[in-house]
Design a protein around this nucleic acid. Structure first.
Lengths: 324, 324
DNA sequence: CTGAAAGCGCTTACAG
DNA sequence: CTGAAAGCGCTTACAG
């Protein structure tokens, strides 16, 4: 049998009200009474039922997090940042994915309405944006972790994609490269446009190919370009995964990196250190993005107003052997 | 204002009891009544409060998951397997880490007692084992995902570490290698002993070095061994991360892989495809381990008895260029 | 400083 | 087939 507040009250010879006050450290309890209650609580090993507390208070002390996939290489860092922050605030974290399309969105939405959590963190909301907007308007606090789009309706955490692209260009330029290939991600992503604009503002080129962020695509694009006889002395790939594909295609074609061609990626996922050669890349502060988003949401739940614009965290160029 | 069961009852002209019966599809409700109630539910957008349901029913339809770290390279796959399974069963997943030592364990334990979840999944419980044992004895259903130890007290999901080690040895042997170096993980892990025993049962060697699963250590060990003039024609590293270190040290020392020395890792993390050369490795079925553990826990919550011994999922040798 | 009572939104015997 | 009432375990005015 679980120990309830009633058990504690009876054992301590006080009312449930008093026990509740002691638990929640309201000032108005007599010193000796409080001490006795605390003793009984310890002795009985009493812990309040979170469900009951949530019901009575109308909040669950839990935040939800909705992610498109858990296996993306940088997701672990984001999650860790979120969990650390949320746990430190004594909140729980309820995790959802939306990779089963309509079905999971529906399931998810009903969880929301069930008030299983007080606020929501969302990573790259793409296909759920309509739902989210409705929920947000319905009063659910939401914070986006999103490097892909611009959603002024929501508070969000983003990174400096434009400047990141520019820093890659400056680095290649300083290394004497003049004819870069830019392998972008899908153009409908805001981050892709930003990275591209930033890069081109420093080092213009007409050799821009739209990719899809996958390794296979990175490999394929380079293979084809080389077959066509296209000439370039460097590559800026919009994420590390496709940069890995680029490296493999160059290697297979007998081009030396960085001798013939320098390569710069974006993200700094764990793999970046281990490609051949190790990848120079524009680092996204993924863990800090998770922390920041969680902190934003928590302080919003605590009553603080959320900032108007997105919170912007800086990228950082990490120089390795692929573009020294 | 949120819509409650009382609103639905009033609007439909029935009692809350009847609404509750419709929601939970108990057979005893009149056809036309049920239809009317369903209409009202849809019209009002009513969704039961999960907190209230949980309180009334004494269960939360949520499982907890406790992981040592979210940034380990194979954790994403495990998580994805768990989340998919748990979501498909209409349960929620509450995520916890225990990387802040005593403080987080305490916090976590109190969440348990708060009955925030009905059952618990644990990945590599090492430092929390005492707590977990106590909770388990106290009636909390627990399933371990654990390749490190043997904990007969708990139901668990493991992989074939012994056979995995043996398969690595057979592969190296078939490739004509006769003098392997085995770089293990910490010996107090059950999986390490199993992998080692499996390997030695096929291809005995006295060149066994205890490592710590980190890349730096893998690199260091090989550097030192080469400096000492030790001779070996192959390496079996107990995880891919340390194997990556081994590859880099060999490369730096001018040894060719697999020409001079073949290298086999363990895990098949995403990085394994991208090392130079790509890493031959013993694949752990991490996602399926997550799925299986979740399914075990859910069916246990549903009343099915858990199997006596651990559920064993097979490893698979993935052959790449580092040991063709 | 303390307590009796109502209420949070459900479910579930019990009675009809 | 349906409903009134008690109960799940808390919190919170309200009264003293």
């Amino acid at each position: 049998m679980r120990v309830t507040i009633a058990d504690v009250a009876r054992e301590a010879g006080v009312s449930k009200t008093t026990v509740s006050r002691v638990i929640n450290t309201k000032a108005e309890v007599g010193g000796s009474t409080a001490a006795r209650v605390r003793e009984v609580i310890a002795e009985l090993g009493y812990v309040p039922s979170s469900g009951a507390v949530g019901l009575a208070r109308g909040s669950s002390r839990t935040v939800g997090m909705l992610v498109p996939s858990l296996t993306w290489p940088w997701m672990g860092e984001v999650l860790q940042g979120v969990v650390d922050t949320v746990e430190a605030a004594d909140y729980g974290l309820l995790l959802f994915t939306c990779n089963r399309g309509a079905e999971s969105v529906e399931r998810f939405t009903s969880q929301v309405s069930a008030r299983a959590f007080d606020g929501l963190l969302v990573v790259e909301p793409e296909n759920t944006l309509d739902h989210l907007t409705a929920l947000h308007r319905g009063g659910l606090p939401i914070v986006l972790i999103d490097d892909r789009g611009h959603h002024p309706e929501f508070p969000s955490v983003v990174t400096t994609n434009h400047e990141g692209g520019a820093s890659a260009a400056r680095h290649l330029q300083a290394g004497g490269r003049t004819r870069p290939l830019v392998l972008t991600g899908p153009h409908h992503f805001g981050c892709v446009r930003d990275r591209l604009d930033g890069f081109l503002s420093v080092l213009p080129t007409d050799l821009v190919v739209q990719g899809d962020f996958t390794e296979g695509n990175g490999r394929q694009v380079v293979e084809q370009l080389l077959a066509e006889g296209q000439r370039f002395d460097s590559v800026f790939a919009h994420n590390d995964v496709s940069a890995a594909g680029v490296l493999r295609a160059l290697h297979a074609a007998g081009r030396s990196v960085p001798g013939d061609i320098a390569v710069v990626g974006f993200d700094d996922i764990p793999m970046a250190e281990h490609t051949a050669p190790p990848l120079t890349t524009v680092r996204q502060p993924t863990r800090r993005m998770g922390e920041t988003a969680a902190r934003l949401l928590l302080s919003h739940l605590g009553g603080t107003a959320t900032p108007d614009g997105p919170v912007v965290l800086p990228t950082e160029l990490v120089v390795r052997l692929s573009a020294p």
